[in-house]
């Protein structure tokens, strides 16, 4: 557990860090929903976000910028293009957001390097659809499965 050493020095506990993670992943999901993006785009963005903070400290990189940049990058990787301007507009209306397009693009490059360009994330969404269709389970059970996946 060498990660977040600096965060700990500044007084963040493990719980704090988990809460930050969860909070921004929820933010990603909500922002993605606003933009009517597919689920898997949000899922990919969350993976990027978490990976980024495996090797970074919250006190060094502003998660408010990182979570939007993760989503932006995920859009590109999943072929659901969203204009940077458009995304920034939504981020600002979703929550007070002090950045602009240029910051977003700069952060994109930082994320790319931190993620080492490993952008392909395999989400089991398609598999679950097929599996549920094959297994013929009833709707409540299927919904539980979706809940577990999300």
């Amino acid at each position: 557990e060498n990660s977040h050493a600096e965060d700990r020095l500044l007084g963040l506990t493990r719980e704090h860090i988990q809460q930050l993670n969860a909070f921004f992943c929820t933010s990603i999901a909500e922002l993605a929903k606003q933009l009517k993006l597919r689920q898997r785009v949000a899922a990919t963005a969350m993976v990027y976000f978490r990976r980024t903070y495996l090797c970074n400290n919250y006190c060094r990189m502003d998660p408010r910028l990182v979570y939007v940049a993760s989503l932006y990058l995920a859009c590109k990787a999943e072929e659901s293009l969203v204009q940077a301007k458009h995304l920034v507009g939504h981020a600002k209306s979703y929550r007070k957001w002090p950045y602009d397009v240029k910051d977003l693009l700069d952060m994109e490059m930082v994320l790319l390097e931190d993620l080492d360009f490993n952008l392909i994330v395999f989400s089991p969404y398609r598999d679950l659809v097929t599996y549920l269709a094959d297994s013929g389970v009833e709707t409540p059970c299927a919904q539980r499965a979706w809940g577990a996946l999300n």
Binding site: E79, A84, K85, L105, L119, I120
Partner: peptide, 21 residues
């Protein structure tokens, strides 16, 4: 079309991510 205002083009990202694999 996908220049300057949009950072790294998504086609470039896909090419890189795939080639690395």
């Amino acid at each position: 079309p996908d220049d300057s205002e949009e950072g790294v083009p998504s086609s470039a990202l896909r090419e890189i991510a795939l080639l690395l694999e």
